[in-house]
Simulated assay, not measured.
Amino acid sequence: MKPATTRQKVVSILYTILLGVIMGLAAKLVDAPGINPIFDDIGGRLGIWVFVATLLSVFSYSPRVAASKVFAFFGSMLTVYYVYTIWILHFFPAREMLFWGICMVISPFCAYLMWYARGHSLFSTIIASLPITVILSEGYLLRYAYLPIHTHYYLIPFLMGVYLIMVAVLLLLVPEDRKKGVLILILAIILSCMLIYLSVLGRIFGGMNGVL
């Protein structure tokens, strides 16, 4: 396969910025009253963003492009989301901005590593299992979720279904070897059990995420 040209790399990053703008605006719009709370609840958690960032990373031309694309995605998405929040809604959520800003800063390093998830080594298997671990852990913790105003418990099974679909998509698309997919799932289940038992996500993110 011929190496990607500079133009191809730049175009892929520009498309990623456009995706970030669209998803940032969509995440803000579904936050409005009258919108089905399931959309807002998905957008307000880590799972969907880990899912998108993983796909952007593994299908990039190189680890450096993966890092650039994921940083560009979060940068454009968060810019649109919080510009709308501050300028249109006249609300300044400093704590939430700091949380997601930290996520944006560390995202290129995660994306750089995630690019190697499609390899055939043990390292690749471990890397590929990490986003699935986070999604599984957060999906399990949805059983304790207090959706918007403590009145939407009926949505929890639907949200868990969305998380299972994200896991299934990653298992189908990320590993090139189906046998490796089984190993990834087993490792992700083991790691997610450890995260849940030790309350790792809650200790790291401390209430910044809707489920934690």
Rank of each mutant, 00 (worst) to 15 (best):
F73N: 03
A111E: 04
V50G: 13
I38T: 03
E138L: 10
L191M: 10
L29R: 10
S57W: 02
W49N: 05
P157M: 07
S57E: 02
T6V: 09
I42A: 04
G44H: 14
Y197F: 13
I102D: 06
Y112Q: 10
R64W: 08
V65G: 10
I13H: 10
V50W: 14
A128F: 00
S12C: 06
D41Q: 15
V162T: 13
V182E: 09
V182R: 15
K28C: 06
Y197I: 10
S76I: 01
D177R: 10
S68D: 14
G161S: 09
M160I: 14
V21M: 00
H90D: 00
P37V: 12
A27T: 09
I106D: 04
L19H: 01
P157G: 07
S124I: 02
A188T: 00
T125C: 11
K69E: 02
L147I: 15
F99H: 08
V211Y: 13
K180R: 15
S192V: 03
G119V: 07
R45I: 09
W115I: 14
S12T: 08
V65A: 14
G47P: 00
I204M: 08
G47W: 02
G161D: 05
W87L: 14
C103H: 07
L78E: 07
A4W: 07
I190H: 06
I184M: 08
A111V: 04
L191D: 00
M104G: 10
V65I: 15
V52Q: 12
V50H: 10
V167F: 03
V174D: 10
L147H: 11
G207R: 04
I102F: 12
L198V: 08
L201V: 03
Y61E: 07
G119I: 09
A53P: 07
Y84P: 04
M194T: 09
G44P: 08
M1P: 09
K2L: 14
A32H: 15
R64E: 09
R64D: 05
Y81W: 07
K9H: 12
G101V: 05
G24R: 03
G20I: 07
L18C: 12
L141N: 14
I132Y: 06
Y116E: 07
F92V: 11
R178I: 11
V211D: 05
A26M: 11
P157I: 09
G44A: 12
A111G: 05
K180A: 08
Y81P: 01
